[in-house]
Amino acid sequence: MSFTYEEKLSSSAYVDVVWRTEDQTDGTYVASADACWDMVFIKSKDGKSKVLLSGPSSNVTFVPYSTGNKNFGIRFKPGLIFTNILVAGMLNATKALPMPTDDTFVLQGITWNLPTYENIDEFLTRLVKNGLLRFDPVVRDVVENKAVKMSARSIQRHFAMTIGMSPRRVKQIMSARKAVELLLQGIPLAEVSYELGYADLPHMIRMLKRFTGYTPVENKLRGEQI
């Protein structure tokens, strides 16, 4: 393993997980496709900070890492909307946020002090208080498999505006991620394939390769959470 990883839950309803890593070597991390937004705070070994905002991704992305970097980040729940940021420009994109000083950054027109892994919830609370985070209730409920009284067409349009992808694509991505999670728990391939509704094993292999960058067996051998 070329970096250490830990994560914690957040008190914010908008957040899936807060995580932090420390890079042990130089390398490139293959990040799976993801329907969620992320924020990443990086501190390199020379003390320089960087803040990245990353939109949903419909394909595998390659994320470089360098020895000595200390990183933490927020993975938001699917259906989250940054009030003033259109998903259109952020699909498959990661942008470095402007930093007026070494320890401040600009997000949605407001200058923020750099948070830490420990006090990240305060930053999230302030985002919410300023009305800068909200949910698309349709997307949120649909991905949680809750009943939504709406046509497939309207649901598609909600997904297009919130995640920038079709519900079908989002479902494929979520299934692929879920498959890796189950494989890492030691559940046999055939069982995972059946459980998640893949037509057959080759179908699952294709989908995992496409959305996680690795085949099921490679994912098992790699042994890394995605």
Partner: peptide
């Protein structure tokens, strides 16, 4: 209806 899973991803 209100307790059924949303049949999503289907077009």
């Amino acid at each position: 209806s209100m307790h059924a899973a949303a049949a999503w991803g289907q077009t």
